[in-house]
Design a binder for these strands. Structure first.
Lengths: 142, 142
DNA sequence: GTTGACTCCGTACTTCGGTACAGGGTTTAG
DNA sequence: CTAAACCCTGTACCGAAGTACGGAGTCAAC
């Protein structure tokens, strides 16, 4: 009766968020999760607060935040940092949108090559390879 | 009169495609560019064919192809590999589109959080941080 | 004939987010 | 009591696409 309900070993914690044990340890090394806390015998045990924190990390990652950014998000206070959290999210939206635009440019260029290829008669050199080999401009540096 | 026009040193070759010398050497190590060829004295020199090849590499990269994929593209023949080149480009389009969709999902989720934040009255805990801390489901594994 | 810019070769380091051991110790179910 | 399953610490490695650096050689101009 002195095993308080819901204290987990590292393996159970990891499973609760769908990650591997090594990932949890990695987050501890990075300071995203506390490395020392309650122990039961020789093993570290984790409570529901740490389950929540780990899930927070994974959700923020799924939204496109890097682990460094997740650190910053974790340091924000729900009560007093609303402005900052919103600015953070808006900056990430801008970031995601610029990546989308870049990919859309690639898609457009690729589609142009493919449709050109489809409209060229058979006994001609491949327009795709030809375009790659002989485009107008050298791609800008960077 | 025996310095044939347009044979370049590695530095000039690199500049002609807007990359660094180390990058050219890296492509040589990867087998994208030939490591041995004409020399003038102790230094390797490069011709227009190699300028074209280097630019081909950069352009294919800009379209989203990895260097491994660029190797495969370089191995294709303009005359006989039209089908393969087109299939390659179409596969890359699918790939780019799936990345776009993933980013659009992120953007949608972020926008939802931000607009929720904008519609909440001031003296309340931050809905963004709150959502990260208390979402419905743990994100699926993988 | 010397200075400065360039080249050669080899190796090591970078970022990012983990993953994979190795070589122990501990716990717990049967 | 023993064996499986789990945990601990520490270190090394992965892929991708380069970047950095050391130490030496060489080339071109003045």
């Amino acid at each position: 009766m002195n095993t308080p309900i819901s204290t987990l070993t590292i393996g159970a914690l990891a499973k609760s968020a769908g990650v591997g044990v090594e990932t949890v340890r990695y987050y501890q090394r990075r300071g995203l999760l506390a490395a020392n806390g309650a122990h039961r015998g020789a093993f570290r045990v984790y409570g529901m607060d740490e389950v929540a924190r780990l899930r927070f990390i994974r959700r923020a990652q799924a939204l496109g935040f890097s682990l460094d950014e997740v650190s910053e998000l974790l340091a924000l206070d729900e009560e007093t940092d609303r402005e900052r959290a919103r600015a953070f999210a808006q900056a990430k939206i801008a970031d995601v949108e610029s990546r989308i635009r870049q990919l859309e440019e690639m898609r457009g260029a690729l589609q142009g090559l493919v449709s050109c290829c489809e409209h060229t008669e058979a006994p001609a050199p491949c327009p795709i390879l030809h375009a790659l080999a002989n485009a107008a401009e050298p791609p800008a540096r960077e």
